[in-house]
C-alpha cells in the first residue's frame, strides 16, 4: 500500500507557496518543515498524498502543503480521513489535529479511528492549551492549570494521549517534540510505514498562551535526564553519555545509573516495539519525565489487520463470489419478479 520506493521527491515538492501564518517562534513551523522532509523520504508522490485537519492553529497545516488536503471542521478530521482512506486505500492519508481538536471535541473519532485500525497517520500537536481561541485549558492541561477559562486553576485531570491510544487498542504510538527535528522526522516516517492507525504525539510549544509548558522536560539542559529515546531492539539508555538505563522492578520500571547499586548494562531492558502484548510499552508511554524519563521515539509498532484493506478485500471477494454484473442482474437473480404484459 505505502510504497516506499524512492521516486525522487524533494521536501520542496510537498511545500506550497503560501507563507505559514503561525506566530513567530511557534513550534508548528518546525513540525511543518519536518513533515515535508519526512514525505520526501517516504517518496509517495504529492498527488497520492492527502492531509486532513480539523480546526485550531495546527489544523491550518494543509494550507501549507502541496498535496491534496482538506481543512475540515472542529474535531472531525479523523472521521473525514477515515472516509477518504476507506474509499481510497491507494492514497497516503495524514491527519493533523491539536490536543483540543483531537482529544476534546474529536475524542470519539480519535478512539474509534484507532480501534478500527484504519491506515491513517494521526499527528497530535500537543501544547496543552487552546491557542486559536486565545488561551483556554485543554483536555491535556495539567490539574491546576490557570488559563482564561480556569482563572483559579483547573479542577480536573488531563488525558494522556498515549493512554487513550492504548485504551483504544492502538497498534502504533510514537512521541517526539517540536525542536527534535530528526527524531520527529524519524517517527513520522515510521508512522507512515506502519500499516494501520498510527498516532504520533508531538509536544509543541505555544509561545503566546503556554510558553515553556514542556521546558522542564525537553529544554536542552533538561532533556538528557528527563527524556529517553526508545528504538526497537536497542537498550533503554538515557542521561548524559547514556549512563542511565531503565530496568524492571517487580511489575514496574526503575531508572538506574549503570555501575551503581550493582546494576550493569545487562540489567537494562531492550525495547521491543513490535511485541503484541502492550503491557511494558504502555508503562514506558506513561512515564511523565519527572520520576521517570519521558519516552520519545516509537513506543509501539505492532502489525494488525488494517480496516481499509479489509473492507476492500471483503468487497472484492464478495463481489467476485456473487458475480452480479450490476443492479439489474442482482434484482433478477435474487428477487421474485412477475411480468405484466
Amino acid at each position: 500500500m505505502e510504497n516506499n520506493e524512492k521516486q525522487g521527491f524533494a521536501p520542496a515538492d510537498y511545500k506550497n507557496s503560501q507563507n505559514a501564518r503561525w506566530c513567530p517562534g511557534c513550534g508548528d513551523h518546525a513540525i511543518l518543515n519536518v513533515l515535508h522532509k519526512a514525505m520526501a523520504e517516504l517518496g509517495v508522490a504529492p498527488h497520492d498524498t492527502a492531509v486532513i485537519s480539523g480546526i485550531g492553529c495546527s489544523s491550518r497545516l494543509p494550507y501549507y502543503m502541496n498535496t491534496y488536503g482538506m481543512h475540515t471542521i472542529h474535531g472531525r478530521a479523523a472521521a473525514v480521513a477515515t472516509g477518504l482512506k476507506t474509499a481510497r486505500p491507494d492514497l497516503t492519508v495524514w491527519q493533523i489535529s491539536g490536543d483540543g481538536d483531537g482529544l476534546a471535541i474529536g475524542g470519539n473519532h480519535f478512539i474509534h479511528a484507532i480501534r478500527r485500525n484504519v491506515d491513517i497517520n494521526m499527528l497530535i500537536f500537543n501544547n496543552k492549551i487552546y491557542g486559536l481561541t486565545k488561551g483556554q485549558y485543554s483536555p491535556t492541561s495539567d490539574r491546576g492549570t490557570v488559563s482564561k477559562s480556569s482563572p483559579y486553576g483547573t479542577t480536573e485531570d488531563p488525558f494522556i494521549p498515549a493512554e487513550l491510544c492504548f485504551g483504544a487498542r492502538g497498534n502504533f504510538f510514537a512521541r517526539s517534540y517540536d525542536v527534535a527535528l530528526d527524531l520527529t522526522r524519524e517517527v513520522m516516517v515510521a508512522a507512515a510505514r506502519h500499516a494501520g492507525a498510527s498516532v504520533v504525539e508531538v509536544l509543541q510549544n505555544c509561545v503566546i498562551f503556554n510558553h515553556g509548558i514542556h521546558s522542564s522536560i525537553i529544554d536542552k539542559e533538561n532533556r538528557a535526564d528527563h527524556t529517553i529515546v526508545l528504538r526497537h531492539g536497542e537498550k533503554m539508555l538515557f542521561g548524559e553519555n547514556n549512563t542511565k538505563g531503565l530496568v524492571q522492578e517487580g511489575f514496574g520500571l526503575k531508572a538506574v545509573t549503570i555501575g551503581e547499586d550493582g546494576y550493569t548494562i545487562d540489567d537494562v531492558l531492550v525495547h521491543d516495539a513490535h511485541a503484541k502484548d502492550n503491557f511494558l510499552q504502555q508503562q514506558l508511554a506513561m512515564m511523565d519525565g519527572h520520576d521517570l524519563p519521558l519516552a520519545v521515539g516509537v513506543i509501539r509498532d505492532y502489525a494488525a489487520p488494517v480496516y481499509d484493506q479489509e473492507v476492500d478485500r471483503q468487497t472484492r471477494e464478495v463481489k467476485e463470489k456473487k458475480g452480479y454484473t450490476g443492479l439489474r442482474d442482482l434484482i433478477m437473480k435474487t428477487k421474485e419478479t412477475w411480468n405484466i404484459g
Partner: peptide, 30 residues
Amino acid sequence: KDLGVKAVQMEDEIAGVCSAIGASYGGHLA
C-alpha cells in the same frame, strides 16, 4: 458489497457525514 458498494457503520452521526465527505473528496458518490 456484492456490487462493490462500501457501506461503513461509523461511531456516530457526525462521523457518518464526515466519512462521506472524505469519500466525496476522494472521488466517490458519497
